[in-house]
């Protein structure tokens, strides 16, 4: 902010006693926007009882999430073990099938028709009259 002439005027600021250029005013407004002065809320002060309540809620939620995450980890491990069991068995009985099941499907993508769950269903919930392109061509 070098070169800005800060000349203080008595009374309310208006166009007549303006000392700053509109460009400077614009910069000052933008700086005011990011400054915390007068915009910060009052410090949240709670009594000890409320503080204990807050701690209890936070701890309860943390434990609840921990349990969910632990269950998910356990489930993933179980799924991995079952894949491993199936593949080890397949390797012993049929080497061709094992090789096919074990090759990396490089470049495989999620289908475009897959959708992410939304809060409310779409107008057409399910596409019932679907005909694959190769079947439609034959007709």
């Amino acid at each position: 902010m070098t070169g800005v002439n800060f000349q203080f005027t008595r009374g309310k600021r208006n166009k007549a006693n303006r000392t700053r250029s509109p460009a400077t005013e614009r910069v000052l407004t933008q700086l005011k926007m990011i400054s915390q002065r007068r915009k910060q809320p009052k410090l949240l002060q709670v009594c000890q009882e409320d503080h204990i309540r807050h701690e209890t809620i936070t701890t309860a939620f943390k434990l609840y999430r921990q349990e969910i995450n632990a269950n998910r980890a356990k489930l993933l491990l179980k799924q991995y073990e079952s894949i491993k069991y199936a593949m080890e068995d397949l390797e012993q009985i049929n080497s061709y099938l094992f090789h096919e099941a074990n090759t990396n499907q490089k470049g495989k993508r999620f289908d475009l028709e897959m959708r992410i769950p939304t809060e409310y269903p779409p107008n057409q919930i399910w596409l019932h009259d679907y005909t694959p392109a190769e079947v439609a061509e034959k007709k």
């Binding site: 799924q79 079952s82 894949i83 069991y85 199936a86 593949m87 068995d89 397949l90 096919e100 099941a101 074990n102 090759t103 499907q105 999620f110 289908d111 028709e113 897959m114 009259d129 679907y130 005909t131 694959p132 079947v135």
Partner: peptide, 16 residues
């Protein structure tokens, strides 16, 4: 029937 659009997750079996 052929009028189904399916997307196979993997070529690896998930359970035996």
């Amino acid at each position: 029937g052929p009028n189904m659009k399916l997307w196979t997750v993997s070529n690896t079996p998930c359970q035996l």
